[in-house]
């Protein structure tokens, strides 16, 4: 089961929930950090990285001696990777989205496949060897996030498939998803089996959560909610969020209370589930309700 832990708003507690669920998860899992622009899961779950590989996007290389300046590539490309400058065609590989159209259609075969560095994928184990670990990290200055996420997802599928033949296969993937509701978040959500939305019941949090819910709804995936920072004094947002979830038929699988203690614990690099036995219970409860929700949804599917 692939569980994407997502949130519309950044800072709602995605990584806190991901790391804590990993801490209390009772079967071997793969922890995946898919927030490749700002990956943080590794800061909490002490991974032992065993392999690191670079990821690339296939972009064209221009052989200027073979180019006849016919302009086919410039017409095919919708992303400004080719420009006609004076009499010659110039290539700007940073603009390329990797569609491969120019390479396939160049009548002179003057374009060959090359590579642009997207970022890295790091694999290993986490939490003292209890879980496998996979994280993606995008290169500074790289504008395109989805290709890096697709490379990460391919690697995840490979790890899941490989683990099936081992004595202790990974039952689940706990995926820390990118924030927001546009391409990066969607790329991750659409490959998940279950989406768990972490929501902070503040005006910003509820607003961004409803955007995320609307974005994920067409994917027809089971969606559930965990309310983080519940019970902020004077905040009517808890009730508002509960009412919305009830109206939309979204189960609230857990309530994590607002606590200054937990903010301090997090600031020291601590996992919320290890803060105290009360906090551990919050997450074992969330784990149990999440597993029950997933079992029910998958049985219905």
């Amino acid at each position: 089961m692939r569980i994407a832990i997502a949130s519309g708003k950044g800072g709602a507690g995605k990584t806190t929930v991901s790391a804590s669920l990993a801490q209390v998860w009772n079967t071997p899992a793969i922890l995946v950090d898919a927030d490749v622009e700002a990956p943080n899961l590794h800061l909490f779950c002490a991974p032992a990285i065993t392999s690191s590989t670079s990821t690339f996007l296939e972009v064209p290389i221009l052989d200027a001696t073979a180019c006849t300046q016919c302009g086919t590539c410039r017409e095919v490309c919708r992303f400004m990777a080719f420009a006609k400058l004076g009499k010659t065609i110039s290539l700007f590989p940073e603009m390329c989205h990797g569609c491969g159209g120019c390479i396939a259609l160049c009548p002179e075969k003057a374009l060959a496949p090359g590579q642009r560095l997207l970022g890295t994928l790091e694999c290993g184990t986490a939490m003292g060897g209890k879980h496998a670990f996979l994280m993606g990290r995008s290169r500074i200055g790289e504008a395109m996030t989805p290709p890096q996420l697709r490379a990460l997802q391919k690697k995840l599928e490979l790890l899941l498939a490989q683990s099936k033949t081992t004595a202790q296969p990974y039952t689940d993937a706990l995926i820390d998803a990118p924030p927001g509701v546009s391409c990066p978040a969607m790329t991750v959500a659409q490959e998940a089996d279950i989406i768990l939305l972490v929501v902070e019941p503040t005006p910003f949090g509820i607003h961004d959560f409803t955007l995320a819910h609307r974005a994920f709804l067409p994917l027809q995936k089971p969606i559930a909610v965990v309310m983080n920072r519940a019970g902020i004094p004077g905040n009517a947002g808890d009730m508002e969020l509960a009412a919305y979830c009830q109206q939309q038929g979204l189960p609230i699988l857990g309530l994590l209370p607002f606590s200054q203690e937990i903010a301090g614990h997090y600031a020291q690099g601590g996992i919320a589930a290890t803060c105290s036995s009360t906090w551990e219970k919050h997450f074992t409860h969330l784990r149990d309700t999440l597993q029950a929700f997933a079992a029910k949804e998958l049985a219905n599917a």
């Binding site: 400004m80 420009a83 006609k84 400058l85 004076g86």
Partner: peptide
């Protein structure tokens, strides 16, 4: 993105 390239094309 690509405003600089498009503008250079216009200059050429």
């Amino acid at each position: 993105q690509g405003a600089g390239i498009a503008t250079a094309e216009r200059m050429a």
